[in-house]
Design a protein around this nucleic acid. Structure first.
Lengths: 180, 180
DNA sequence: TGCCATGTAAAACGATCACTTTACATTCGC
DNA sequence: GCGAATGTAAAGTGATCGTTTTACATGGCA
């Protein structure tokens, strides 16, 4: 892995544990052992590194969702459960960045909005696969459960993910019987 | 209103717009016009003010939920919709504080966890009222929808709250037919 | 009247911030 | 073997951070 990727991975860990604004560049670079000079060569600024971290984080998570098969909606929550078990449950890093940089860095706010639209679209495809036809309203509801589970897990325990998966199942089943 | 309440109200607005860590004490005190000396007389430290803001915010929101009546679960989302229309949708301030101060101020993390437990308990009472008997699993699911709606509204529009209310209705109805 | 509580204004504290610069080591294609 | 690229180490930039301090104004209560 090249230096740039190392820096992104290390910075991701630092931001995840301590937030984005409440940490200095030295602490951000410590996990990767990079110097501040290398930071500004590669990313131009601290905020440039933040943007790179968010891009990578979104790609990494979306890549986890790739295994299609039976119960595509339920697999969403399987992936979330595994992800949170690995990374720890501290709330969605993208939304955390959005709220910390609101009013300070519009590029970050815009990026996160676009990423969430992309994610909601992915859920829409899975809902359509489960139902046999698209159902944007149901997709939104499943998305709500997903974001709720991610947020709630930071103040609860991981069993909350199963509650979300079960709720999604009930909603999908209700939609199926409504339009059979 | 006394000075202390003014400072809390002003600081709440500042934190809401710009986050907790990415803002200096001068900007926090600007809305109330208080001096830094008064800040440290009343709250001891910047973090002390943050704690007071979070306590007040939780009490204010819980007070909004007090009107009981028909459809106690649906009224949760009515209150949320009204709240977000007034305050703007930037994610739950309590969870935002939790994630920004994780690893830096344990008192804040502990406070938010307790507040969320209290809120989940309130939902449990409403679910019991709607169903005629307690259903902790359903209460958890409604809570998920609530937190999901709060989070999602920051990157979507307020119509997402209606989607959450509708999903909660479906879940309650499913629970009702399951155990009639 | 006199006094204490409560407030603002403003300067100063050392620490830390994001960022730049200088100096030097290493690797690699040519 | 040599120059260019890429890296670390470390000092220094001015700005801003949270906090303390000094000085002074105001008000209600004894």
């Amino acid at each position: 892995m090249d230096k740039r990727s190392h820096m992104i991975a290390g910075a991701t860990r630092a931001f995840e544990a301590q937030g984005f604004r409440g940490i200095g560049v030295d602490a951000v670079l410590a996990p990767s052992g990079a110097s501040t000079r290398t930071l500004y060569k590669h990313f131009g600024s601290r905020d440039g590194l933040v943007l790179a971290v968010l891009e990578q984080r979104h790609q990494d998570f979306m890549a986890r969702l790739n295994d299609e098969g039976a119960d595509p909606v339920g697999k969403l929550f399987d992936a979330l459960e595994q992800w949170l078990a690995e990374h720890g449950a501290r709330g969605c890093m993208l939304l955390r960045a959005r709220s910390e940089y609101a009013g300070a860095n519009e590029a970050i706010v815009t990026l996160v909005r676009r990423q969430k639209e992309e994610f909601e679209h992915e859920i829409g495809q899975r809902v359509a696969a489960a139902l046999g036809h698209p159902d944007p309203a149901l997709a939104r509801q499943v998305w709500l459960l997903f974001e709720g589970a991610t947020a709630a897990a930071s103040v609860s325990d991981l069993s909350i993910i199963s509650a979300a998966r079960q709720a999604a199942k009930v909603l999908v089943e209700a939609a199926r019987t409504r339009t059979p």
